[in-house]
């Protein structure tokens, strides 16, 4: 029988959604489930996780683990691995997960698959399904190692919603430390461009080709519809628009009545930030762009033809 150890991340002292999704993944594979909760004063979170399907929950509770540091967290996970010898170690593909997965794999000389969306049992082996090339292609991976390690993309499956009774035990993590020193958490400068309350957002991507086109091509449509302007990450990375315009996992997460994606291919990090919009229209010249998978209506055409025509049609409709 196989055994899976999951690292359950906490947020505001409770298991985060991504942790409950790892439970779904692990339970889908069957076998024994052990969950690891790391932090300081995590007894309540561990109890909570045990009640929400986490199985046997190990609480790694120590003042030195109060703030995340790669060194101390990796040591805590190594203690759990030594004690449990699982066949599979699952982390979430989050800033903590991607900080730790490679470090642990190298230390254990084990194979690791990251940003996995699905794990399939095939005979005695596991197959890991992962997006590549910024979601343009999918791959099936075979991984060897003891344990095999994977990070799972948040949102790839439903959070486990059962309430199976589990148990909690404490894991000895005394003496875990790190050479990296946590200083503080900061919020990126907020700016005045709050997209989270907008009803209509029109976002531009790299397809607009140059910063001036945001003013000359996109802005007239934004103004005609009384919308708010957003942008994809590459636009912000290139300095065409400030960070406060960025929609995505590292920018603003939005759910307007209408989201219009113009010249945006739809990298995962962008989709995470807008896929819950009530209605999505995508305009892109590449018919295979992942954005069309989440859109309700799509236009496969040159945005430099469609956007001015649409602006004109909107103005005409308002005038009529």
């Amino acid at each position: 029988m196989s055994k899976t150890l999951i690292v359950a991340e906490l947020q505001n002292g409770a298991p985060r959604e991504a942790a409950l999704e790892l439970i779904t993944q692990a339970r889908g594979l069957g076998g024994e489930l052990v969950s690891l909760v790391i932090g300081s004063g995590v007894a309540e979170a561990a109890e909570d996780l045990a009640k929400r399907g986490g199985g046997r929950v190990l609480a790694a509770d120590d003042a030195a683990l109060a703030d995340y540091t790669s060194g101390a967290y990796a040591q805590a996970i190594r203690r759990a691995l030594d004690q449990e010898s699982p066949d599979l170690l699952l982390l979430s593909n989050t800033p903590i997960g991607w900080d730790l997965a490679g470090k642990l794999a190298a230390a254990l000389d084990a194979g690791v698959a990251t940003d996995v969306v699905r794990i399939e049992q095939e005979g005695d082996d596991l197959v890991f399904i992962k997006r590549m090339f910024n979601a343009k292609l999918d791959s099936r991976l075979r991984v060897t190692g003891s344990p095999r390690i994977a990070t799972v993309q948040p949102g790839a499956c439903e959070a486990y919603a059962g309430s199976d009774a589990g148990s909690v035990e404490s894991l000895d993590v005394s003496g875990c430390g790190s050479r990296t020193v946590f200083k503080e958490l900061r919020t990126a400068a907020a700016g005045g461009h709050d997209l989270t309350k907008a009803d209509l957002i029109i976002s531009g991507g790299r397809g607009l080709q140059k910063p001036e086109n945001f003013d000359s091509v996109l802005k007239p449509l934004v103004e005609a519809l009384g919308a708010q302007m957003g942008a994809s990450r590459p636009v912000v990375d290139s300095g065409w628009l400030p960070h406060e315009y960025q929609v995505g996992s590292s920018g603003q997460v939005v759910a307007p009545k209408l989201y219009m994606a113009v010249g945006i291919s739809g990298a995962i990090q962008h989709l995470v930030g807008m896929k819950n919009s009530n209605f999505i229209i995508a305009i892109n010249k590449d018919a295979d762009a992942p954005i069309f998978e989440v859109a309700d209506l799509g236009v496969v055409a040159d945005l430099f033809e469609i956007v001015p025509a649409l602006t004109e049609a909107v103005s005409a409709a308002k005038g009529g």
Partner: peptide, 28 residues
Amino acid sequence: PKVTIEKIYMPPKGEGAEILQGSAAEVS
């Protein structure tokens, strides 16, 4: 390698978007 790619493929198309057809004016 400890990780091998068994297969790489185009993601299966879901229902996806309804794609509008026609000229720029018609689509608009």
